[in-house]
Design a protein around this nucleic acid. Sequence first.
DNA 1: ACGGATGTTCGCGC
DNA 2: CGCGCGAACATCCG
Length: 285
Amino acid sequence: MPELPEVEHYKRFLDRVLVGRQVARAEADPTPLLKGKTTPKLFAEKLAGRTAKCVERNGKLLIVRFDEHVVLVSHLGMSGKWSLRKADEETPPRSRARLFLDDGHVLDDVDTRMLGRLEVLSDHELARRDDLRSTGLDPLRDGLDPHRLGALFGKTSRPIKVVLMDASVIAGIGNIQATEALFRAGIHPKRPASSLAPNEIAALAEGILATIEHTLAAQAHEDEIIYLSEKKAGARNPFLIYGRVGKPCPRCGAKIAAVSIAARTSAYCPRCQPATRSGLPRGRG
DNA sequence: ACGGATGTTCGCGC
DNA sequence: CGCGCGAACATCCG
């Protein structure tokens, strides 16, 4: 599930249920989620007895700091989530790792596709790991100043959607949030980033923050957002156009179209998000 | 059965 | 070096 809003949701969730608790016992199955030196044995040994001090989020990366300089790094990939249960309840399907807490709860790292990451290391090692440090602006932490964005966008003619999803520019924006933000701003996903006018950049900054807040709020009401299959999703797809190709645009009624950009499907409204900005008097949103 | 799905990283070719 | 493209990872679903 993870793009920035979902990861932020799990950060707050772990703040609530894990921070201050001691890990009585820890297990990890031997899956591709375990990276670097982390093995099931090391996972269990390093985490047993540790007390969680705080949770940080860098873009889509979660970092849990424990006492004794122990750090747990978690990336949810495409299909990961953290799930809480009571110790006497059954292990959920596709639980790949478990933290048995001192209050009788268990946290499961549940991940179908296992494209995420799970790594235990020391805070000293973490500090030296460039690959675990995010370089881009974090919309929730840093805000999105249109002038800074303009400076970043001005340097490249890559499609604006690709730039939005570039973690070295803005951290945490994936296919859904990029699609939604561009729709909110009325900007075609293939527009060269350097072609955006200042008012468009400002609208995009607002659109990004708005879709993040919207998704965060939706997630707070549902324990899980179901994204793609409309049948199951029904009202549970909280997005304006993502997953709604072929349906009417919620703003103008035109049929939502799709275009492939960098091998990802991009939904867009052909009328609200024209390919060129010449001659379109975009009014107030 | 085939294609695509919220992410990231790599190699290839221009 | 920039950039687009496709593949890879691994699994499920329509």
